[in-house]
Nucleic acid binder design. Structure first.
Lengths: 256, 256
DNA sequence: CGCGGTGTTGAAAATTGTCAATAATTGTGG
DNA sequence: CCACAATTATTGACAATTTTCAACACCGCG
């Protein structure tokens, strides 16, 4: 995390910022449709540009924030791939999500002004730093922004409901199928293939997210490959039969 | 759900409301510390009283809202006990939470203006109806309210992270121990006993929440009782050894 | 008093986890 | 650029946990 090159400079509002952070503008960002509310006026967009003042780079393996750190900002991912994970007192930990470009991390920190999970980059990444007090100020003036913030948080709640369903009631094959479909769908929304993907995370991290041991994840991949549903070469996955995966997820199990 | 007695009347702002709804005031509500931000001025409190204009009663077994219904309001529980649950396409469903007095339900509906889960009363209940557009308006003017809304949503996200940890990495005994400790802690915060509680939900609902079958829940209760950790008579539970439960939750399993 | 919903318990089956060995891949330092 | 170490992934055999199926008990209520 080349700390030797870090160089603290006063920013426009007097705070010290890492010299690696870069002045940016949402108004011409190609991820705008993912991060921003739609239908903003040029003036509103310009004001939001002021909120998203800086970017920050995170090296693969590095943390954007860690459990216990004080919360200041939400982060919009520009490039790269993150996992968020919580750690119980006894040391076992749980991956609570994987985030990619256009997605927001840091919402967990709002409630107690302290982050309650780690956000770790699974590949070199860059994020837009959005100081939360500025978001608050601005969303008092821009209705669409206020609603957007609410929607982002609500979306995260709904996403987690889906994970609870997965963890609470699906078996290994269904979980992995749901996981792959979700990943490929989000990647496709970002212009990537509908059927091919490169996993940015290890089997162990997938397992942690899905509530399975890494061996079970590996075995399940192998089973999918045997069945001709996917082609797996390490982290490269090609989905050969999307419908089969869909059927697995919606599979009736028993008659409950 | 005695629909025959329902009687639509124009409310102060012209909307039609169920005659069962009652004009209320937060300013003198004894649950205020649970629902409301602290440190409000009398004027601010008065303004909030306008937002929380009505109450609604829900009979045991009745739904406060259902998946698919359009979202208008958040609800603060005044009395009673709810479960929220989502239903997958294939019919299996997952209890995503149990809510009691002072807690807020409906956050899932914000993102798409449509509820994505059911909120069902497990005992006769009464809720305060908080129209979300009014919350938005008012939180633009009252800083503390804006932050409060953000905190409520963030708290829900963090709570769900905890459930993910539970579902993803705990065994049956640990799950049930964590569940009991959580319930009794929340009840105690509301003035109830630290060691005695009455479960408002069936074994099946507990199981759905904890990702276990009802038989496993029942067996685990029996095991706790054998071990002298709790005393169980149907839905009446007395915790005899809180520390033992705590140790179960923090139990190191294996050496991962 | 009986009925439906709820809860308990047993035995067998299914799923997943554990442990261990090995292979493949990636990163690192010479 | 290669070789070695460390990490990651695969696979097998066996163990542990949970589910399934079934029988029965309990409780509240009409």
């Amino acid at each position: 995390m080349d700390t030797k090159t870090v160089n603290l400079l006063p920013s426009s509002d007097g705070r010290l910022v890492d010299a690696h952070t870069i002045k940016v503008a949402c108004s011409n960002c190609n991820l705008r449709e993912l991060c921003m509310p739609v239908g903003l006026s040029p003036e509103e967009l310009a004001r939001i540009d002021e909120v998203v003042a800086t970017r920050r780079k995170v090296r693969r393996g590095g943390a954007l924030f860690r459990n216990g750190e004080t919360f200041h900002s939400l982060f919009a991912i520009r490039t790269g791939f993150f996992k968020t994970c919580i750690t119980a007192e006894d040391g076992r930990d749980q991956v609570t999500g994987f985030q990619m470009a256009g997605e927001i991390v840091g919402l967990d920190g709002i409630v107690n002004d302290r982050h309650t999970c780690d956000a770790v980059a699974l590949e070199d990444a860059e994020v837009c730093v959005m100081p939360f007090d500025l978001i608050g100020e601005l969303s008092r003036e821009i209705n669409a922004l206020q609603h957007h913030v609410h929607r982002i948080m609500s979306r995260e709640i709904v996403r987690e409901h889906g994970v609870m369903l997965l963890l609470g009631s699906m078996r290994a094959e269904e979980r992995l199928a749901a996981f792959l479909l979700n990943l490929v769908q989000r990647l496709h929304a970002r212009g990537f293939s509908r059927s091919e993907l490169v996993l940015r995370m290890t089997r162990e991290e997938i397992g942690s997210y899905l509530g399975l041991k890494l061996e079970t994840v590996s075995r399940t991949f192998s089973k999918f490959a045997e069945d001709g549903v996917v082609e797996v070469r390490q982290r490269h996955v090609r989905i050969l039969d999307t419908e089969a995966l869909r059927r697995m997820v919606n599979q009736q199990q028993g008659c409950s």
